[in-house]
Design a protein around this nucleic acid. Structure first.
Lengths: 169, 169
DNA sequence: CGTGCGTTTGAGCTAATTCAATAGGAGTGG
DNA sequence: CCACTCCTATTGAATTAGCTCAAACGCACG
């Protein structure tokens, strides 16, 4: 897993996404891409020289088509995240994050109620526009309410339906 | 000008962007696009039937290339907006919004310190993840501090440099 | 057995929200 | 031309969700 983030000059950080296996980083072919990336788990990546890749894409319209589909999908995720950051409460954000993670991972591996969270609480906070304390408290509260169980490096969703209801749409 | 937004079931709204002259709506070629659009000013739009357009794009790799560039640019704007929504204060959001609007409009018409704001205060609030009252108060404070002048349907930036400094990056 | 680092928990604070009242036009009709 | 309505925006007062500051916890590692 890779965290993709932007920094403000004073050090504030916003994580704009977590990339999983199979994801493509640096979709914008030309411009300098203003996002930094750091591995959260061990990753193996395939790097292309920009010029060579651009030339290759030029020759293969089908690849460009796939690239555009992926970019469109990313844009759609980004718009959902804007709704989350602009209009959802802390509890809704955590619930949406956990359900969203579960669903993304279910598409990669087999569906599971155990959601691995290899990133730190600070990473989650910076992804959801919260502080580390609010993330911690909210997860604790959800555990107290039997919505989930905190396990090493993740959570087990005890009541995914009720959790999904908490996302507020 | 067109507002692009998403609604939560309970009525909360997040405006994910304002489209200006020349912008392309509905970049995702296939999927159902989960964003609604409403005209804020008079607009003239050019509509394409999805199937015909997709077929046309298929035949014209250069057009797909342009489409992908535009989508990449939109994604980049969306990521900036995530930083704004997740990590910036109300004052920083308003400042960034006004400077951003000025810069976008400068690319279309000639540069100007007068920024037209045809959308309502509620629209601005829903774009910046704030309430209408906070938007109003913050603009009033900026006017009091001689940063800008509120004029009919917009603001005049009296000190763009100082305002830009308030954006925090 | 300490030391270090990430996480949790607690207590108080504050930026932004909510609720409420007022003000400022634009449009309508007498 | 004025009175009235409607709607948006502004201003004020009180509230609160989430933040900040601070302390304690827990666990991995040497």
């Amino acid at each position: 897993m890779v965290r993709l983030y932007k920094l403000l000059p004073d050090g504030r950080r916003q994580i704009v996404g977590f990339a999983l296996a199979g994801d493509f980083l640096g979709l914008a072919l030309m411009e300098r891409y203003g996002v930094s990336a750091e591995a959260v788990t061990e990753v193996s990546a395939c790097r292309f020289a920009r010029d060579a890749f651009t030339a290759y894409v030029e020759a293969k319209p089908h690849l460009l088509r796939r690239l555009h589909e992926f970019a469109s999908h990313e844009l759609s995720l980004a718009q959902d995240q804007m709704v989350l950051l602009g209009r959802r409460s802390a509890e809704e954000r955590i619930a949406a994050f956990l359900i969203g993670m579960r669903d993304r991972l279910a598409r990669l591996r087999q569906p599971s109620v155990t959601v691995p969270l290899p990133m730190s609480r600070q990473d989650i906070a910076d992804y959801l526009g919260l502080t580390i304390e609010t993330v911690s408290r909210t997860i604790t509260k959800m555990a107290r309410n039997r919505l989930l169980l905190v396990v090493p490096d993740g959570v087990r969703l005890l009541d995914p339906a009720r959790l999904a209801a908490l996302t507020g749409g």
